[in-house]
Amino acid sequence: MSSKASEVLSLLKRDVLLGNLKRGERLDGRGPEDYREIKIETGIIGKAEGSALVHIGDTKVIAGVKAEIGTPFPDTPNQGVQIVNAELIPLASPIFEPGPPGEDDIELARVIDRGLRSAETIRLDELVLIPGKKVWTIFIDIYSLDYNGNLFDASGLAALSALLTTNLKKTEITGENIILKEEEQPLPVGRKPVYVTLVKIEDILLVDPSYEEELLADARITFIVDESDNICGIQKGGKKGFKPSEILKAADIAIETATKLRKILPST
């Protein structure tokens, strides 16, 4: 497990953070429902079919999309394949350790994967080349570069931005032969899910937690929201619980926040 090696917050910082929160202030000057500044750069990796670097404040995550021709899964012969992988590499934080993906990496990848699947972001049914035999496999690899809180939202935004700017080679199929042409076409995309994470510290809900806020948090919850305000996935984490009323309030905040975040998505 690429366990978080030294998850501690000094008592002094903890007191300051808590004291400020009770007055409705966060250490970086934000209000409880304010998001940090977001910057999205796309098309940054020439060799990838799609790519995006997302900054949320000082958090940086890069996602790259590679496409390969492969065989479909036996139970879905007429669908392309979507594979999401996430790596919390030691480059990104002193608390990430080298080694095979641990439970944090796997949870992150699976939550991003579920959101994209539930929203049918990649139109997998349009990625079939020879039914039952050959389909496009879309790999989405997410690498954290600088971890300063809220990797879920940053990873979701990076994955979605990379997919929205992905181009696949056009193909010519004669019998069992697939010829890749020079011309490209955009990856067929459906709904666009936005990931919004909140943490709970005592009874305060905070959108887009910083690293310190994540350390102090009692619990975390991520909502994945599509353009018609449907929830395409939820993941609760952390060592304590939420009251149902807190979850419903968090869902409302997440839906509102998602509408704002959606405005900065790259155009397809």
């Binding site: 579920r114 699947r117 539930s118 929203a119 919850i221 599509d226 305000d229 449907n230 929830i231 395409c232 996935g233 939820i234 993941q235 609760k236 304590k240 619980g241 939420f242 009251k243 149902p244 979850i247 419903l248 869902a251 409302d252 839906i255």
Partner: peptide, 22 residues
Amino acid sequence: LGYVTLFQADGRFTAEELKEAF
């Protein structure tokens, strides 16, 4: 105690359905 300690979802749900689910 009335605390939710695991909560996940996949598929698509409206905010109303969330309330109903609880």
